[in-house]
């Protein structure tokens, strides 16, 4: 019986570790060649479709995570103070009212780092633990 409970504790610990991993900080990232300083308000303006171009005149390539990704909800709540649902509805509203200027692309988290590392005009966000190609990426904001 004791062994059974110990096993349970061990299983619990092993399953708890990934959960703790997924709850790490979300970071907003750009390509390392992009040295433009960005504040939280700037990021909000970019993801609100108010600012559509970098200061060098290039169109911003905007990336979002899928709706069901927890990192997206963390990002929405930290930057906009509302849930992903509200943000997605606002973007969909801009689409069908034809007022959207710079639509975002949705990519899964495993691709985000590589895409940003390759594209000088990209901006995205992802769990810090899921970052790859660190040398080609610059973290502009860490959201706790």
């Amino acid at each position: 019986m004791r062994a059974f409970f110990v096993s349970l504790v061990l299983i619990g610990l092993t399953t708890a570790i990934p959960a703790a991993h997924a709850a790490g900080p979300v970071v907003v990232i750009v390509n390392s060649a992009n040295q433009q300083a960005l504040t939280e308000q700037d990021i909000k303006n970019i993801y609100s479709d108010i600012v559509t171009h970098w200061k060098n005149g290039k169109r911003i390539k905007l990336y979002n995570l899928p709706a069901e990704d927890d990192a997206r909800d963390s990002f929405s709540r930290a930057i906009f103070g509302v849930s992903t649902r509200v943000i997605m509805q606002e973007e969909n509203n801009r689409k069908i009212t034809n007022s959207i200027k710079n639509p975002s692309k949705t990519k899964r988290a495993s691709l985000i780092s590589t895409i940003v590392a390759r594209d000088r005009n990209a901006i995205a966000y992802v769990y810090k633990d899921e970052l790859k190609n660190d040398k080609d990426i610059r973290i502009v904001l860490e959201l706790n």
Binding site: V51, T52, H53, Q89, E90, N92, N93, I96, T97, N98, S99, K101
Partner: peptide
Amino acid sequence: HPLANFRGGRFFTPAGLWSVDHYPPF
């Protein structure tokens, strides 16, 4: 350009909020 874009055809009258943001899902 972000400062000036152009549209031609039939479009919602740009006036206030509800004239444009009026769709039932939103």
